[in-house]
Design a protein around this nucleic acid. Sequence first.
DNA 1: CTGAAAGCGCTAACAA
DNA 2: TTGTTAGCGCTTTCAG
Lengths: 318, 318
Amino acid sequence: MTIRDVARASGVHVSTVSRTFSAPHLVNAETRARVLAVAEELGYRPNRAARALTTGRTHNIGLIVADIANPFFPPLIKAAQSSARERDYHLFVADTDEDPAVEEELVLAFSKQVDGVILCSPRLSNKALDKLAERVPFVLVNRRLRGVATVLMDVAQGARSAVEHLAALGHRRVALVSGPAGSWTSGEIKQAAAEVPGVELVVIGPNAPTEQAGIRAAAAVAEAGVTGVLAYNDLVAIGLIEGLAERGVSVPEDVSVVGIDDIVPGRLNRPKLTTVAMPTADAGRLAVELLIQSVTASTTLETKLVVRESTAPPKGLT
Amino acid sequence: MTIRDVARASGVHVSTVSRTFSAPHLVNAETRARVLAVAEELGYRPNRAARALTTGRTHNIGLIVADIANPFFPPLIKAAQSSARERDYHLFVADTDEDPAVEEELVLAFSKQVDGVILCSPRLSNKALDKLAERVPFVLVNRRLRGVATVLMDVAQGARSAVEHLAALGHRRVALVSGPAGSWTSGEIKQAAAEVPGVELVVIGPNAPTEQAGIRAAAAVAEAGVTGVLAYNDLVAIGLIEGLAERGVSVPEDVSVVGIDDIVPGRLNRPKLTTVAMPTADAGRLAVELLIQSVTASTTLETKLVVRESTAPPKGLT
DNA sequence: CTGAAAGCGCTAACAA
DNA sequence: TTGTTAGCGCTTTCAG
């Protein structure tokens, strides 16, 4: 089914058919109706790849994340997909398995087939990113780079309100179970958490961003003489709660724990996790929007503390 | 950067450059090396869309799932993406939001841009699927249709071993918290569970496949006089455990609960969920494989019971 | 408002 | 082994 078949069947020239689909206002209403009817009947659909060849616009977007199966990303992917579809864009999704080399290769591989790519929490160096930016437009999520559109989530503010929440409950000595050494996010969290007045912060880490790491960190937390904990993310927080439980320390009775991210498992966990919700869906939507409109803006999305069951006043203060 | 630039820069004709990339054995080793070097230097990459126009093969695959954010799917998506990439295919991912109309529209929208699409747990009628099959090759996951390649996971066997596990622990009266009314999976589970000898099965449902539905089902389960439960999926199981806890019924002390799927939240839950693991990653990989090789086979993957902490002998039997 | 013709980047016969 | 040529399905000037 090509444009030619439709042209023939409706007795007009191919260019008229083409216009019917890509510039309908340029074609007589009557002709248009006829062409549309014929196209419908033949089940014709413009071939986007062929179209891309002449227009230079593919109407495709690439989305690259570190790990599709990490509960942090699916809501972002879902939202990006849905926004893209609303605007008649298709979404390629790829997974780097946390490998910067793969990241670069993927961007390059996508470059000819997309109008732009969304890179989430990239591990590539600024220099590498700058070079890639010459080949294909992109939007960065969770990473700042001048001259490139970015969508940031305000973890710093989130971390601050998490610690403030603990402070308000009466906690005076709080542990920060930090993230991986090189992580931008982890740095932000550490700095913001340390700023909160009236709270003494004990940093435990660096740690991998996993449940296992949380379990392992439990020993150090138990011995740190703290009554509250802010974890690098929900996975770590969940692991920590489990590790603490193994040592007979219960949450929130003995120790309060706050996570970051607000992933599904945290909502289902018991006790339900108090956490800093990251607006991942908004970030996905916004990234698509920025890409399609090709605006080079740097946006910061607000985070929000969600108080659930893993935090309470410290023992003896009730 | 087109093939023409490379041709010019390396002093050969475009077709030689083309061959260097798509049929290297047809070109003199020396020339090939030179062309490759020039291409590398210019950062040339073949334009896949243009290539698709002549060859008819896009090297793209479409993957359509009901809900990207449902923890069941990400491992499948991840595995599919990774297999696809290994074979130099790119993956479009889309989400139907459980709407059959969207499903159909997506397949059609993808059709010109992919070599085939993978449809997971489609809601479309057999007839609609048959019609779509004429327009684009596809592989069905979790749905059987004659004449179409399918990847099935053996839920029936899984449900059976789940109930057998309960029976072996000493449970004699077991509830099945079933799934949505129209679901093929739910039917399979019900039938298989009922077959296990020595166990009286009480069906509670239909229910939505959600945590909320699980919470709601807790009342009925508590009053059903059962000591064991098989839930339609892990989400329902987790909700059920929570709902039971609210009523002072604890798992596994008072009631044993088995889920199905083995999603991440179930592994992180407390008690860790005993469940029937669905080989979703294998399914994703296999679906890609079948599509690329275009074999019309019907495969059934084995499921496996994973015993964790939510099951135990019934009270008074220890 | 519609038709004619050129060309997007590439591959695939066919010749040389 | 390499060059020539036609054409994939579509859009886009330019005429009419």
